[in-house]
Design a protein around this nucleic acid. Structure first.
Lengths: 237, 237
DNA sequence: CGGCATCCATTTTGATACTG
DNA sequence: CAGTATCAAAATGGATGCCG
């Protein structure tokens, strides 16, 4: 339907039958950070046509990976949300993001900044071992895009929008983020150059900025285990 | 090129630019089990046309994920091999296979058996903790397809062809494998019904057959941690 | 033969206009 | 706003041709 089936008796082939067609995993990427309306998805996925978005949404919906929910009374509209089944794709999405980031640096020209990708990059770069015992929330402003990362004992949880009580807040623009992501400048140097503003207690600032140390993969690094048992929060505050 | 680029500044999008186009990951699946010639790949990837195979091979080659090597003198021909960089995709391929196996059970009709998928399924189902301290090789004959799994302290290594000195040998046909994979019969019951023959010491037989205990990934179960530590040393900056 | 390249019918995709 | 409809461009699948 969305894609021709491989018709192989193969878990990998079946995965690709479900989410292997163009834009599917990027759509999942967007919904992993929270519910979104149709037009939000169009805006956040530059290059994806409205018609194809419709097709993909239907396909993912029929396979139970996403759902269309009605928003509470005040806002009488719908939003697409990832289901629990769909959220089981998160480790795979993170792993692919980590893998792709490794050689992204050589191919960054002509590429457009998308906030969902920034969130995913930070998530893929997260080193859980360095945050043992830490429970904090960091709020990021990249251009006009606001999101936050909440670190708990079990996981790093990214969310769109402001944090309730962020322990640290960071401001930078998309171009600076790109230069940090691709290793052309460190977060610390960006601060010195006034490209990045960070607010909060000194030790918290340090931990927060460490999320932006996109070091090449080192021995012992692992993709963070995400708690898949939690209920998908349908709507952020 | 092979596929239109997403042109997002995103690790995930870049991964998909590299291996997200149709057949790419199935091609990687085949090469993960050993070098193969062009026609081997055509045979083992039913549905993939010869021309597209050529395109995919070139694309993966230009990005250093696979290579074309000249075989040693006796056989004066070439074979495609996975590179070390390409092998860093193995955890992702295994994770996708595991994820896809979860709902394979409902869609197994009209699907063709491919030996590479069987190997991958066993690999994805492997529980390292149950094999601590074990170093054995198990040889599988599924129809005319022969491969073996060598368990060492660090990993399960699948290879095509016979093992040098298998500790256990299993014979079954593709249909029986499908029924075991999809949970319609257990390996133990297949033995009782004469559908599966296993040779070796009793305890080794037990361990070998445990590789065929395909526990379905049901809703709510976690996708196991994707271990990308191997990427670390293989990915040059 | 092995390793593609070429041609061509079908699908899929991307861009844009349209509708309730 | 949330999708559909339409259509051109690109990707795919299948067959066949070419060339060492």
């Amino acid at each position: 339907m969305a894609n021709r089936s491989y018709d192989h008796l193969c878990g990998l082939a079946h995965s690709l039958d479900l989410v292997g067609s163009r834009w599917s995993l990027l759509l999942v990427r967007e919904l992993l950070t929270g519910p979104k309306r149709y037009r939000d998805l169009v805006q956040r996925l530059p290059g994806l046509g409205s018609n194809l978005l419709s097709t993909r949404l239907k396909h993912l919906r029929t396979h139970g990976l996403i759902a269309l929910e009605r928003l509470p009374p005040p806002a009488s509209t719908h939003a697409y949300v990832i289901t629990e089944k769909g959220r089981t794709l998160e480790p795979i999405v993170v792993a692919l993001a980590q893998w792709g980031c490794a050689n992204l640096e050589r191919h960054t020209d002509n590429k457009v900044f998308v906030p969902g990708a920034a969130i995913l990059a930070i998530q893929a770069n997260f080193n859980a071992e360095a945050f043992v015992g830490i429970e904090e929330a960091y709020e990021f402003h990249i251009g006009a895009n606001v999101f936050h990362m909440r670190v708990t004992q079990v996981a790093l949880t990214p969310r769109l929008g402001s944090a309730y009580a962020p322990d640290c807040t960071v401001h930078l623009d998309p171009d600076t983020f790109q230069r940090i992501l691709t290793g052309r400048v460190t977060a610390a140097n960006a601060v010195r150059q006034g490209l990045l503003q960070v607010h909060g207690p000194i030790d918290v600032r340090h931990r927060c900025l460490s999320l932006l140390n996109f070091v090449p993969l080192r021995q012992g690094r692992r993709v963070p285990m995400v708690d898949l048992t939690r209920n998908a929060r349908l709507f952020p505050a």
